[in-house]
Amino acid sequence: MLDLSRIFGRKNNSKDAAKDRLKLVLVHDRANVSPEFLQKIKDEIMQVLAKYMDVSDGGLDINLTTATGEDGKSRVPAITANIPIKSIKQK
């Protein structure tokens, strides 16, 4: 189906930025997660990982974002972690 709103409307307009930023900030507001709390989670994840592999502290990136919920529609909070591994410890 031809969607004229896509032709007439420009992409990347400022309301999309507003929506995206709002969604992210509301995840944090609703989850009521403080930076200290998130830091604590980061530290403990690192402790567990350090038992099995050599990971770099600097490249660590753990964030609260949203994911699609089980019903396939609603947005739910999610933790995403991006942790570069230097080497894996072999037993």
Binding site: S14, K15, K19, L26
Partner: peptide, 16 residues
């Protein structure tokens, strides 16, 4: 502004 895409519309806000 809504028409230009420079203001969130009713559906955007309800969705959020």
């Amino acid at each position: 502004m809504v028409r230009r895409g420079d203001m969130m519309n009713v559906d955007d806000i309800i969705d959020i």
